[in-house]
């Protein structure tokens, strides 16, 4: 019981995480607390048991006898099979729930694309005149996807455009930088600027090798894999600047591949957006020369 109390206290009072700045960060922190409490209880319990045994059952100087010959105890063994099983099941279900609330369980892309490859058979046939018909097989490997419809491979938050009202940003990761392209305004920025409270939909693609987009304060990470467009949606909640870190080894300058995400208050964001529209930038430049 004491153990449980200590565990709960530790979970409540030891804060090991950076500030929470997105809508799923509090969910994450909730999960973290639960895991931390359970972990602390288990660890301290086992540690205590071990230390107690080591002290209590130390061999006395000169005592050459043996301990008791207990070879097992079925009830006990069942008990300590069941307890971890229950704990693990609980944790699993709980974290599933959290993940669902973070949007992680929304099916990616359209179901058609998952099996589309198998269904589509190439109609191209080879030089069939030299062989009896039917013996030449165009290998029915998934053929080139005809349309422009791009498949989304992974991420959090579903297929493109699934969340209406979200701010779309195209992210390109390359050695060694992130580029953020804003379709609304058609310009490219080296920093990510978003509006507090508005959902953001990152459509990510990599040019060369695998990178990973990570914002510790958002508790979000997504690999950006060449050839596999990926979606990441989230809602920032707290204004401020936070680091964007590349978390997947991508070459010598992997450690330097960082950027910043700036979460603006709503009107500040609109101002920023206006400022950066190519048209505005041009006029701002001329304005600058006029005043300066």
């Amino acid at each position: 019981m004491l153990l449980v109390l200590v565990g709960l206290w530790v979970g409540q009072n030891v804060n090991m995480l950076p500030v929470a700045a997105s809508s799923n960060a509090p969910l994450y922190d909730q999960l973290f607390t639960v895991l931390f409490v359970i972990g602390t209880i288990l660890f301290l319990g086992i540690l205590g048991l071990l230390l107690y045994s080591l002290i209590r059952f130390r061999r006395k100087e000169g005592d050459l006898g043996d301990g008791v010959a207990v070879e097992g105890n079925l009830q006990l063994e069942i008990f300590w099979t069941a307890v971890p099983a229950v704990v693990v099941l609980f944790v699993g279900i709980y974290s599933y729930d959290i993940y669902d609330r973070m949007g992680g369980m929304i099916p990616l892309s359209d179901p058609h694309a998952m099996h589309g490859g198998m269904a589509m058979e190439s109609a191209a046939t080879g030089p069939s005149d030299s062989m009896p018909p039917g013996m030449v097989m165009a290998a029915n490997v998934p053929s080139a996807v005809e349309g422009a419809e791009v498949r989304t491979w992974g991420g959090i938050g579903g297929s493109p455009g699934s969340s209406s009202g979200a701010l779309p940003v195209d992210v390109t990761a390359l050695q060694f930088a992130f580029l953020f392209h804003y379709p609304e305004g058609d310009f490219i920025s080296g920093e990510l600027h978003v509006k507090a409270g508005q959902q953001v939909e990152l459509r990510m693609e990599a040019r060369d090798v695998i990178h990973a987009f990570w914002v510790p304060e958002f508790r979000l990470k997504q690999d950006v894999i060449p050839g596999q467009p990926t979606i990441l949606t989230f809602t920032p909640t707290r204004a401020g600047s936070y680091p964007i870190v590349c978390a997947e080894l991508c070459g010598p300058y992997h450690g330097g591949m960082r950027s910043t995400v700036v979460v603006h208050e709503p009107d500040a964001f609109d101002a920023w957006l206006d400022q950066n529209r190519p048209a505005t930038v041009a006029s701002a430049a001329s304005g600058l020369s006029a005043t300066g």
Partner: peptide, 18 residues
């Protein structure tokens, strides 16, 4: 590969059976 990677446009991959 078969399940997820389409054959690139214009690529040839044909097997005969005899």
């Amino acid at each position: 590969f078969r399940a997820v990677n389409p054959l690139p446009a214009g690529a040839i991959y044909e097997l005969e059976l005899i």
